[in-house]
């Protein structure tokens, strides 16, 4: 299932990663480069496995650690109600 941002969340790329603006409550969130790569992969329809492959293909990180980190980021995005359930 493709990850989707909530309708009132907009994104902006920066030199450091991505900023998410929650138009509903005015909060904005900064994602670093690896979080941006992960989010972009998932929003483009990629699976968690694909996000892990992108991380391990770009950064010096093993697949187990990368998977933990992808899952943790997904939890953070859901807890912040930035993505659709």
């Amino acid at each position: 299932m493709t990850l989707r941002l909530r309708a009132d969340v907009s994104t902006a790329d920066t030199d450091y990663g991505t900023v998410l603006l929650d138009g509903a409550d005015g909060r904005y969130w900064q994602l670093n480069a690896s979080a941006s790569l992960t989010l972009r992969t998932l929003l483009d329809g990629g699976t968690v496995d694909e996000a892990v492959r992108r991380l391990t293909g770009t950064y010096a990180v093993g697949p187990d650690r990368a998977r933990e980190d992808v899952e943790r980021l997904l939890t953070r995005l859901r807890d912040a109600r930035l993505v659709r359930p």
Binding site: V19, L21, D25, G26, R27, Y28, W29, Q30, L31, N32, A33, S34, A35, T38, L55, G57, T58, Y59, A60, V61, R65, D69, V70, R72, L73, R76, L77, A80
Partner: peptide
Amino acid sequence: DSRELQAYEAPEMFEAGSFAED
């Protein structure tokens, strides 16, 4: 296959501020 991997920083997301406050 000799592409250098970048140093890894775990994916991080933090609240950077409030549009309302700013």
